[in-house]
Every structure is written in C-alpha cells, then in structure tokens.
C-alpha cells in the first residue's frame, strides 16, 4: 500500500515495538497467571515452588473444595449476574430514551436538563452514601438486590446519556424525516434509531458493566446479607475468613476472576471495533 518506504526501516519498525509491548504483556499477565497456577497446588508447594506449574505430586483441588463447602459461591454468582444484567438493561434502555429526547427535540430547558444529567459523570455517587443508605432503609430495600440495581442505574445513567446523546445527534436525519412523513409515532422513530447507535451501546455496556461487577462498596453497605452477597463481596468476606488458608484464598481469587475474564474475552473484539467505529466517521 505504501511503496515509498525503505524496506529495512520497515523491518526495524515492525519488530522494535514488540519489545516494549511484550515486556508490558508480561507485567500485565504475570500476577494473574501466578494466582491461577498456584490455586491448584497444595499448601507447601505454594510457598516452596511458586513459579512451577502444578505437578502430579503438588496438584491439589483442596482450595476449591473448601470454597464450595464453606461459601455459597453459586448463589453469589447468581446474585452478581442478576444485578449486572438488570442494571445494564435499564441503564442502556432508559439512557438511550433520555439521550434520544435530548438529541432529537428542541424543547425549553433541554441544555439545562442535559447539564443536570451530566453532573453525575463528574461526581462519584459514593459521596452520597450516607443518604443513600437512609433512603434505601426508608424504602424498605435494605439487603435486597433491588437497592443495588437502583443505585447502579443512577450511577450508570449520566455517562450513558452523555455518550449516547452525541451518537444520536449524528444519526441520519433523512431516516427520521421519512418515517415522520409516513406517520410513524415518535416511539417508533426511537426504535428505528436505536439499531444505528448499537456500537455506542456496546461500548457503554462494557464500561458500565465492569465497575458494577467489581463494586465492593455498595454491596458492603446496602446488601451484605448472606442471601444478597455478590461475587466481589463474597470473595472479600471469604478472604477475610480463610485468609490463612492460601489454598482457599487463591482458589477464590481465581474463581472471582474467571467469569469476568471470559466475558471480557468474548466482548473485547467487539469493544475495540466499537470504540474505533465511534471515532472514525
């Protein structure tokens, strides 16, 4: 494609960047790999040969057994899944609606409302914890997943609305006008536009999903009952209980990492494509 380049220069620029990149890959992956391989080893081997892969002698499933005997991780996973799925659904759906209204209609107070909704991007919701707790208690939602979901929706909306508004604005006008001429309702037009911002939706999805899955603060404060523990909180509590049992510690760390890693690997290809799609017009 580009013939003006000198070949040797090109070879150098092809291999040189790999040195820092590979070095950094090592740094990024090493801790994760270390935990996973040691979680399958027996206690003494963890301390004596931490860098080795488990061998027939050192292989042990003990940590995972402790984990499933003493903590209800299946339930924690279910809770996390429910919270993340419902929060995501409402964040994307309600966020898209609001963004559509802000982008599409020139009603009085539109800029102010946009600003009002954008404040939340800059101010962490955590600062309102004291009042959120009181609110949740007064609504009778303490120790329910509903409380978590509501807080996460509120937390995720500002960024979602902000980003989606930009994308909605750039949606082709002809499509909307044609639909209006055909007598389509405004709701119908929203449904027509929604698929067009799918890449943006996917991007927003991963950026809002990760903090929700990993949040320790609100589960700790709003839903720390045994029945409503999320994976992150469950792991934290479990680590506290079995902190001296390294088999169990490493197993629980591994188990808490795996689902989100898998989800990420599934989404990552899309994520990249979508971020890029967003910036290239």
């Amino acid at each position: 494609m580009n013939l003006s380049w000198d070949k040797s220069k090109r070879r150098a620029s092809n291999t040189l960047p790999h040195i820092p990149l590979m070095f950094f890959t090592l740094i990024a992956l090493f801790p994760i790999v270390l935990i996973v391989i040691n979680s399958f080893k027996e206690r003494k081997a963890i301390f004596r040969t931490p860098y080795h892969l488990p061998t027939a002698e050192t292989f042990s499933f003990k940590g995972y057994i402790t984990l499933f005997e003493r903590a209800d991780f299946e339930l924690y996973f279910l809770n996390s899944f429910i919270v993340v799925a419902l929060s995501m659904f409402f964040i994307l759906f309600l966020g898209a609606m609001a963004a559509f209204a802000l982008a599409e209609y020139d009603f009085p107070g539109n800029p102010i409302l946009g600003l009002y909704l954008a404040i939340g991007i800059m101010i962490p919701i955590r600062l309102g914890t004291v009042s959120i707790l009181r609110l949740v208690v007064s609504l009778g939602l303490i120790n329910t997943l509903t409380a978590l979901i509501m807080v996460y929706i509120a937390q995720g909306l500002p960024m979602t609305i902000f980003i989606l508004t930009q994308f909605m604005k750039s949606a082709p006008k002809d499509l909307k006008d044609a639909a209006r001429v055909d007598g389509a309702s405004e709701y119908r037009i929203f449904w027509l536009i929604l698929p067009l911002v799918r890449p943006a939706l996917a991007t927003v999805a991963i950026f809002t999903m990760v903090p929700i899955w990993n949040d320790l603060w609100f589960p700790l404060i709003l839903a720390n009952g045994e029945k409503t523990k999320t994976v992150t909180l469950g792991t934290q509590v479990f680590l506290g209980q079995f902190v001296i049992d390294w088999n169990a510690v490493l197993s629980s760390l591994t188990l808490a990492m795996v689902p989100i890693l898998i989800l990420y690997l599934i989404f990552s290809k899309n994520l990249i494509r979508n971020i890029t799609a967003g910036s290239v017009k």
Binding site: F90, L94, G95, M97, A98, F100, A101, L102, Y105, F107, L113, Y116, L117, I119, G120, I123, I125, L127, G128, T129, V130, S131, I132, R134, L135, M150, V151, I153, A154, Q155, L157, P158, I161, S185, E186, Y187, F190
Partner: peptide, 29 residues
C-alpha cells in the same frame, strides 16, 4: 409534548432519586 416526557421521565426520576437527592442530602447533613 407528552412523548418527550415519556422518554425522559424514567431516567430523570431514578437519577434524581438515587443520585442527586442523596448527594444534596449529604451536603445538608
């Protein structure tokens, strides 16, 4: 227009109740 209200109300209500109100209330506290 009613449809604008429909589009905006759910997000604004949840956001106001679970984010803006607690932040202001913390400030008051």
């Amino acid at each position: 227009p009613f449809h604008i209200f429909v589009f905006l109300a759910p997000a604004v209500i949840i956001y106001s109740l679970f984010m803006v109100y607690p932040l202001l209330d913390s400030l008051r506290l």
